Computed example of a mutant assay.
Amino acid sequence: MDEKPPISKQHLTKDQALQKLRHYCAYAERCHSDVVNKLYDLGVWRKEHDEIIATLIEENYLNEERFAKSFAGGHFRTKQWGKNKIIQALKQKGVSPYCIKAGLKEIDEDDYEQTLQKLFSRKWESLKGTSNRFAKMKKATDYLLQKGFESHLIQPLFKASND
Results as ranks from 00 to 15, higher is better:
1 M>Q: 08
2 D>H: 06
5 P>S: 07
9 K>T: 08
11 H>R: 15
11 H>D: 11
15 D>L: 06
15 D>H: 03
21 L>C: 02
23 H>M: 11
24 Y>Q: 02
24 Y>P: 00
25 C>W: 00
26 A>S: 13
26 A>P: 04
27 Y>C: 09
29 E>P: 08
29 E>M: 04
29 E>Y: 04
30 R>V: 01
31 C>D: 01
33 S>C: 10
34 D>L: 00
36 V>N: 04
39 L>Y: 09
39 L>I: 10
40 Y>L: 14
43 G>Y: 10
44 V>T: 07
45 W>G: 05
50 D>E: 15
53 I>N: 02
53 I>V: 11
56 L>D: 11
59 E>V: 02
60 N>H: 13
60 N>C: 04
60 N>P: 00
61 Y>G: 12
65 E>A: 13
67 F>P: 01
69 K>G: 15
72 A>C: 06
72 A>R: 11
73 G>I: 11
74 G>Q: 05
74 G>R: 05
74 G>V: 05
75 H>R: 00
75 H>E: 01
76 F>N: 03
78 T>A: 11
79 K>I: 05
79 K>L: 14
81 W>I: 08
82 G>W: 09
82 G>C: 13
85 K>T: 05
86 I>M: 08
86 I>C: 10
86 I>D: 06
87 I>D: 08
89 A>Q: 03
90 L>E: 04
91 K>F: 01
91 K>Q: 14
93 K>V: 01
94 G>C: 04
94 G>P: 05
94 G>D: 06
95 V>K: 07
97 P>D: 15
97 P>H: 12
98 Y>I: 13
99 C>N: 15
101 K>H: 10
102 A>W: 02
103 G>V: 09
104 L>D: 06
104 L>P: 06
105 K>N: 09
106 E>P: 10
107 I>N: 13
108 D>Q: 13
111 D>W: 03
112 Y>I: 03
115 T>S: 14
116 L>W: 06
117 Q>M: 10
118 K>W: 09
119 L>F: 02
122 R>E: 14
123 K>I: 11
124 W>T: 02
125 E>P: 00
126 S>P: 01
127 L>K: 10
129 G>L: 12
131 S>F: 01
131 S>I: 05
137 M>D: 08
138 K>L: 13
138 K>R: 13
138 K>P: 01
143 Y>K: 11
145 L>F: 07
146 Q>T: 15
149 F>W: 01
150 E>D: 10
151 S>M: 13
151 S>I: 15
153 L>H: 15
154 I>G: 03
156 P>T: 07
156 P>W: 12
156 P>L: 12
157 L>C: 10
159 K>P: 00
159 K>S: 12
162 N>L: 12
163 D>S: 13
